[in-house]
Amino acid sequence: MLLIIFGLYLMLGILGLGLAADWTYSLLFVQCYGVLALSYISFYSLIEGESPSLVLVMAVYARREKGLSLNEANQLLASEDIMGIRLQELERDKLIWMSDQGYQLTPRGHLLGGLFHCGRLILHLDKGG
């Protein structure tokens, strides 16, 4: 949905700039707009979801000098079925589907998984998570 909204605004912007100024100026604005739109989309997913790291930091800060014990930190995240929530989100976004044997990747999941696999190889990173 966000992509459609940004796409429509981009078309309007290109049309307006194309009529008002040189086409090279339009390209300059398209580049800036495109990058900022992508930044907003990735930032929105950060707002929408719940980052376990931020949950931990906020909980530690709430305790201040009393501190948060490791057990409490474990309970804080364990009480949420993080794996279950993430699997639901992946299914909702059509990146995985449930077969008779278990979860399988959809073509979209393969594409995204492949992209991140390449990134991991290039950047020499482990599986993370």
């Binding site: 980052s51 376990p52 790291s53 993080i82 794996m83 993430r86 699997l87 989100e89 992946l90 990146l95 995985i96 979860y103 399988q104 990747l105 999941g109 995204l112 998984g113 991140f116 696999h117 990134g119 991991r120 950047l123 990173l125 599986k127 993370g128 998570g129």
Partner: peptide
Amino acid sequence: LKTSLRIRILAEI
């Protein structure tokens, strides 16, 4: 790549 559990799940599957 470093922190996403969803990306990790995709990699495992």
